[in-house]
């Protein structure tokens, strides 16, 4: 018989003991360890998933922030560009204004300089012209001219009338001293007599006279009495001409566009005398010029 029943029973018991032993020492601990590990792995996976989700969220947030930042930067850049452009425009305008002002100032200064120079030039020219005219007339003056002047003076005296004649007559009457007759050269007796005679006839009385030579008159005769003066001299003409020219230049210099030179030089040139021998003086001075060249 191959089956030993005692052994069968013993083996069955042995097997059951082995089942218990292996359950105790093998299956339970191993399965527990596997379970624990699976749980650990699951936890780790869940953790990783959570972290991934969080990372995704953070990445999204970061991306969003990045986009917002980009947007803001673009906005700021645009704003800055606009401001810079505006500032540039303003600076350009300022610079242009400043340049305009400066240029206007320089223009003014230039025109001032030009005016000053022009003025100086004119003054100088004027002085030269008058000096030359004075010199020429002085050179021309002579006894015969004086003689002729005496004639002219007497004829002027005779021609006096109206208020000027009255004023001179008044002066002659109230004078305590004899009236003074000044001339550039010593008058000859005939002329002195002619002047005395003309005055006597004009004012219908005997006029006491005192004759004097005054080279500064250039050429001409002057009667002074008690503040009143009757004169015909080239110096007077020159003075009045100079005054007239200066007035004209002043008018020109002032920046008045309507300062047209008035042809009233001759009218103004009339000396304080009541006599106005303008045309002749002009012609005389014109004539004098070529003559002065002869000597």
């Amino acid at each position: 018989m191959l089956i030993d029943w005692f052994t069968v029973g013993a083996q069955a018991l042995n097997f059951l003991i082995l089942v218990w032993l292996l359950k105790r020492f093998l299956y339970k601990p191993i399965l527990n360890a596997v379970d624990a590990r699976e749980k650990l792995i699951a936890a780790k996976l869940a953790d990783a998933a959570a972290k991934e989700a969080e990372a995704q969220k953070e990445r999204d947030a970061f991306q969003q922030r990045n986009e917002a930042f980009d947007h803001q930067r673009a906005e700021l850049m645009r704003k800055a560009t606009d401001e810079a452009n505006a500032e540039r425009q303003r600076l350009l305008d300022d610079a242009r204004k400043a340049a305009d002002t400066l240029s206007a100032k320089r223009q003014d200064a230039l025109s001032n300089d030009a005016r000053t120079l022009h003025q100086a030039l004119r003054r100088r020219t004027e002085q030269e012209v008058f000096a030359i005219a004075g010199k020429a007339l002085t050179d021309l003056a002579s006894s015969s001219l004086e003689e002729r002047m005496g004639e002219v003076f007497t004829s002027r005296v005779r021609a006096m009338e109206g208020r000027s004649k009255e004023r001179v007559a008044q002066g002659l009457v109230t004078a305590k001293e004899p009236a003074l007759v000044r001339s550039a050269f010593d008058l000859p007796a005939a002329q002195r007599t002619a002047i005395q005679k003309a005055l006597n006839e004009t004012f219908s009385r005997e006029i006491p006279l005192r004759f004097e030579t005054a080279p500064e008159l250039v050429s001409g005769i002057e009667l002074t009495t008690n503040g009143q003066k009757v004169a015909w001299s080239i110096a007077d003409y020159l003075t009045s001409l100079q005054t007239g020219v200066e007035d004209l230049l002043k008018d020109k210099d002032t920046p008045r566009p309507s300062a047209a030179p008035k042809p009233a030089v001759n009218a103004k040139a009339a000396p304080r005398t009541k006599v106005a021998p303008k045309p002749r003086t002009a012609s005389k001075s014109k004539k004098a010029k070529p003559e002065t060249k002869h000597p």
């Binding site: 082995l18 292996l22 020492f25 093998l26 601990p29 590990r37």
Partner: peptide, 21 residues
């Protein structure tokens, strides 16, 4: 039985529940 039980006991005495074993 001895080999199985003692072998299991020896191995499972210090089981690792970590990833390294």
């Amino acid at each position: 039985m001895f080999v199985l039980a003692v072998g299991s006991k020896l191995v499972t005495r210090k089981l690792s529940t970590d990833l390294e074993r």
